[in-house]
């Protein structure tokens, strides 16, 4: 069956696996569900459906804490068996609580933040040197961009005119311990990336049409600049008692909260 990447279904998958494995970071995954769904459905190219194809587009989840959103999409693609989800985080689980690049379709080992951005810059530089039309998409969190290597990588991407590189910033306004503007204020993320020479757009990160149009618009632009898409998102989006509630960075589901959340997400998105 052709995958639809229905976002309610993706969120249910995330809830079920988090419940099965007593996993955390549910809210971190929920804020990037629409971004992931849109990328996999409309933008990422995997020749012959092969996640390891040499000429694939690269999706780098630098913000590894959202990995369950990626796993849910991989399930839609048929890259992961159902057992991987029911056994999530149990003894011997191949799917870990943070991305492991040895899993097909996963480009980087993340969880330690600020790594994936630079790896993505390297992937984009490699595609440029090889003169392929491969695109590199890197998803970073707004908390993650506290990390210095992100800004080192911006300098390089801009200097080397890596127009095949796009960073998507999941601006949900929270990091592990609280609000980003109270911990280490970022002010305007868009103007920061602009000042580093990126072409930028800011959109509602839960509006799939807006996300897709913005990606097309940035790529249609003939500028040689790297691209930054700032996605305004809600941490915990999709479940009323999780949205804007940072305890769901860490909190585990119990049978009650799992059932309530699943009920809110019943049916299809359309």
């Amino acid at each position: 069956m052709h995958p639809t990447f229905d976002t309610k279904k993706l969120r249910r998958t995330i809830l079920d696996m988090a419940y099965a494995g007593s996993g955390v970071h549910i809210a971190c995954a929920f804020s990037i569900v629409e971004i992931m769904a849109t990328l996999y459905r409309e933008h990422l190219r995997f020749p012959n459906g092969d996640p390891d194809a040499a000429t694939r587009d690269y999706l780098v989840l630098s913000k590894g804490h959202g990995v369950m959103a990626q796993y849910a999409c991989m399930r839609e693609l048929g890259w992961l068996p159902d057992e991987a989800f029911s056994n999530y985080l149990s003894d011997g689980s191949a799917l870990k609580g943070l991305p492991d690049s040895r899993l097909p379709g996963t480009e980087v080992d993340s969880g330690s933040l600020g790594h994936g951005f630079s790896i993505g810059v390297g992937l984009a530089m490699g595609a440029k040197l090889s003169m392929t039309d491969q695109k590199t998409y890197v998803i970073v969190g707004d908390g993650e961009i506290n990390e210095g290597p992100i800004w080192e990588g911006c300098l390089f991407a801009s200097h080397h005119q890596l127009h095949n590189f796009m960073v998507i910033i999941d601006e949900n306004g929270f990091q592990a311990m609280g609000k980003t503007n109270e911990i280490l204020a970022l002010n305007s993320i868009q103007s920061k990336f602009e000042s580093f020479g990126f072409d930028t757009l800011s959109i509602d990160g839960h509006d799939e049409i807006a996300i897709s149009q913005a990606i097309h618009q940035l790529q249609k632009n003939r500028s040689k600049s790297p691209k930054a898409l700032i996605a305004q998102t809600i941490k915990g989006k999709g479940v009323s008692f999780m949205a804007h509630n940072n305890i769901w960075h860490y909190t585990r589901l119990n049978s009650d909260t799992h059932a309530k959340a699943i009920t809110e997400l019943s049916g299809d998105s359309q």
Partner: peptide, 24 residues
């Protein structure tokens, strides 16, 4: 094939990993 990554060692090593993944 010579890249001066600037005074930015952390990014340089991450990029090297990306370049290796891209076949270099």
């Amino acid at each position: 094939r010579y890249l001066n990554a600037g005074v930015a060692e952390q990014n340089m090593v991450g990029m090297a990993a990306g370049l290796a993944r891209a076949g270099y």
